[in-house]
């Protein structure tokens, strides 16, 4: 009863935030609405007792990805008119793609073949979501998991390799050289007689 009320409240906030993401005129507001959407989605997952997934969603997307996203969006001088230019031209394609996605979602949730919608298994008291997930991930799906990890690693290396450039004019200092500096190399004490005014 209480859970249902909380669910509908969260769902309403989630939908509202998601709508704001695509309707907000200011890109920073849109990004912040996306943060809110992630947050409420995590809340709904918590209701499903998937605490590991919920907190990971917050940790990864809200805590890291969206921060960097905001970082970039705030620095860019986004021209809204330019963004809206191709709206009508791209609309038919977007409707087709969106329609297919919506259809797939409905088919998935409504069908009994997948049986995902109606799982009301009661879990024992000492049940730890994280432990179970780790067990499955590192035993049953270990190869898939490793392959995903390698793909991500390749992506990281590629991203770094693409953006790395050695600038000649940079004034960055090497801390090791700074630390290695000795007083004798920099300072010379000169002893000289005092000059007095006549």
């Amino acid at each position: 009863m209480l859970e249902t009320i909380v669910f509908y409240a969260f769902a309403a906030i989630l939908l509202g935030a998601a709508l704001r993401v695509i309707t907000a005129r200011n890109p920073v507001h849109a990004a912040l609405a996306l943060v809110l959407a992630f947050f409420t989605a995590a809340g709904i997952w918590l209701l499903l007792r998937a605490e590991f997934l919920a907190i990971t969603l917050l940790l990864v997307y809200v805590g890291a990805v969206m921060v960097l996203f905001l970082f970039v969006v705030m620095m860019l001088d986004v021209n809204l008119e330019r963004l809206r230019e191709g709206f009508w031209k791209n609309l038919p394609m977007a409707v087709v793609v969106g329609g297919i996605m919506a259809f797939e979602l409905v088919a998935m949730l409504a069908s009994r073949h997948f049986g995902s919608a109606t799982s009301t298994r009661v879990v024992p008291a000492g049940y730890s979501n994280t432990r179970e997930l780790g067990r499955v991930l590192y035993t049953q799906y270990v190869y898939a998991f490793e392959i995903a990890a390698v793909i991500l690693l390749v992506a990281i290396i590629a991203a770094i390799a693409l953006t790395l450039r050695r600038r000649k004019d940079t004034k960055a200092l090497d801390p090791a050289l700074q630390l290695a500096a000795r007083r004798e190399e920099r300072v010379r004490l000169v002893s000289m007689p005092a000059e007095t005014e006549r």
């Binding site: 605490e51 907190i55 990971t56 940790l59 809200v62 805590g63 921060v67 994280t130």
Partner: peptide, 8 residues
């Protein structure tokens, strides 16, 4: 995890 998420 909760603490880590919130501090971020």
């Amino acid at each position: 995890l909760y603490v880590l998420a919130l501090t971020s």
